[in-house]
Simulated assay, not measured.
Amino acid sequence: MIHEMIVVEGKDDTTAVRRAVGADTIETGGSAIGEDVLRRIELAYERRGVIVLTDPDAPGERIRKIVSERVPGCKHAFLTKDEARSSKGIGVEHASDEAIRRALERVRGPETNEDRASEIEWSDLLQAGLIVHQASARRRERMGELLGIGYANGKQFHKRCLMFRITKAEFAAALEQMEQEGR
């Protein structure tokens, strides 16, 4: 049983999460999150903690951003588009039980002052070819998978590296793996 409440988009996501792990969920009802849902998320954060697990698409990212701004200390779990894809579409509800479990095992929390000593800098992204590179989008997608923080544009990727306390060692290991794969 997962102690934290898991924020998902809808009922089908709740069904998928409960099928994969023992957990309680809060459904946002889509990207137009109401004030009452945000208050429930705040209360859940105070009492049990919160993990955001949304679809790897634009509306899912919008929900993640809204919740993060309102509840800055929440944790995040990410599914890649491949993990969340089925013949019926892309979303948490289409992910396998194993993919959901893996995402929840790789959950990331917000950074603390102690983490800043080894934080990823913009120059690290530049040197790794994750920005200002002909294949930067593809490289960020793979690095996001390896680091468990999902795909994002360059600015958001950097922000996630900071927010989820990606260390230089983790970053270097993921970069090395990606380069061994020939990407």
Rank of each mutant, 00 (worst) to 15 (best):
M1C: 09
V8G: 02
E9P: 00
K11G: 03
D12Y: 08
A16C: 04
V17D: 06
G22F: 12
A23W: 04
D24C: 08
T25P: 09
E27S: 13
G30W: 08
G30C: 05
G34M: 04
V37K: 10
I41A: 10
L43H: 14
D55H: 06
D57Q: 08
D57M: 07
E61L: 09
S68C: 09
S68M: 10
E69C: 05
R70V: 15
G73E: 13
F78W: 06
K81M: 12
K81Q: 12
D82W: 08
R85C: 15
S87V: 13
S87E: 15
G91F: 05
V92D: 04
H94V: 05
S96K: 07
D97Y: 03
D97N: 11
D97C: 04
E98S: 05
E98Y: 01
L104P: 01
R106K: 06
V107S: 14
V107D: 07
V107W: 05
R108V: 10
N113P: 15
R116E: 14
E119F: 14
I120G: 04
E121L: 06
S123C: 00
D124Q: 07
D124C: 02
L125R: 02
L126H: 03
A137M: 13
R138Y: 04
R140N: 12
E141I: 11
E141K: 10
G144F: 10
G144W: 08
L146I: 12
I149V: 01
I149E: 04
N153L: 01
G154D: 07
H158K: 05
H158A: 07
K159L: 10
K159Q: 11
R160W: 06
C161E: 12
C161I: 13
R165Y: 07
I166L: 08
A169K: 14
A169I: 11
A174M: 11
L175H: 08
L175R: 12
E176H: 13
M178R: 15
